[in-house]
Design a binder for these strands. Sequence first.
DNA 1: TATCGAGCGTACCGTACGGTACGGTACTGG
DNA 2: CCAGTACCGTACCGTACGGTACGCTCGATA
Lengths: 221, 221
Amino acid sequence: MRSSLAEQQETREAGAAAPEPPSVRQQAVLDAVLALMVEGGEQLTMDAVARRASCSKETLYKWYGDRDGLLTATVRWQASRVHAGREAVQALDGTSLREHLQDFAVSWLTVITSRTSVALNRIAVAHAGSRKSNLGGIVLANGRFAIGERVKPVLEAGRAAGLLAFAESEATFRTFFGLVGRDIQIRLLLGEALDLDADEIRRDAGRAVDQFLALYGQANT
Amino acid sequence: MRSSLAEQQETREAGAAAPEPPSVRQQAVLDAVLALMVEGGEQLTMDAVARRASCSKETLYKWYGDRDGLLTATVRWQASRVHAGREAVQALDGTSLREHLQDFAVSWLTVITSRTSVALNRIAVAHAGSRKSNLGGIVLANGRFAIGERVKPVLEAGRAAGLLAFAESEATFRTFFGLVGRDIQIRLLLGEALDLDADEIRRDAGRAVDQFLALYGQANT
DNA sequence: TATCGAGCGTACCGTACGGTACGGTACTGG
DNA sequence: CCAGTACCGTACCGTACGGTACGCTCGATA
């Protein structure tokens, strides 16, 4: 865990860098890629993408260089859509802290259980095995790390308000992350068909927040 | 989550079924596959396996039918090695409960951070995308579900001894699972290079057990 | 020693897929 | 009206890889 801190930083950098926003037509192409990924049946070949997007392979290569470039652009494109703006955190009381955490938990669960996320993560994981162009880094940067950066200020505001007690916000966030996600993501990635509906997600999130506050909360929560 | 319970059962069945134990020579072949997976550099092609194992492709096809069969056999082979015998749980006191949980946490963290597990899970995840022969099911059955089945009796014994309070052991185990694993597995699968040494694992496990007991423990723990 | 099966090494086949080339069309600016 | 540009569709190339065929060696059995 020691050796990787610098690398995480770099990863986050790399993932955040957006070379240039795709044109409308290009977005359509990337959406076609996403659609193919989610459907999964088709083999996600350049031919399939071109057919699906009604464009020529030559154009794909012109725009994205090679297959990896296309995949990378797709991952970035999806990432750019997920980013909800990070609102500034002001004064917190017990209720609003709980609500914030609940929101994070719900939106995180919603994301990781979505067919898009599962498909994208599968691609990225598979890719991480064979090196070159780290999709994994981008996915991490825009998923796990992005939400971490959004949650930590809330935790710190909670601490400042005397609602939470903890030493390192990173470690504390990771506990929160574990309580929320548990075994869900790995089970989905490995092909299990658990589909949580909005209600179950809300209940799950609620339980996670309760547990988190039981561990880190102070008196008046 | 409702619809998948029967399927989980089935998955577990499927994963547990061992058709026939591989001969020594066959084990050597499977070990060669594992080695290639872990090294990752090579492309895990049938040629590569044959070369590495010093056997002919024809033999591979004779023994395993096709590439999928080989992969499946490899996953099962690795699984068969991980299974530590499940010792019967007798009377627990606070200390021995804590020790048991600590052991589980340590061994789980050790497994999921091992290069073998990461490589294997990558393969299985990639495979889960394209259907057919569910490696994912096997990995789940022998990883996540197997440890669940071993932990739950301990939890129940702890409850019987008045050391723990909870309603469903499955849900309780999942919380434990989340507290132990947090974001580690997904980060590793996505290619991050965090390598925990034995010491960090022990500390991590200790923290997880502390937190778990804080949530579910009764007085005298 | 003759026979046989198991299995190694190598050569081979078919195909899928990444990547390139090119002709044809529509739109834009002069 | 004429370049020039962008891009679609299709045909094509090279190669990597799954799967098969075959000759050869070696150890076991009679």
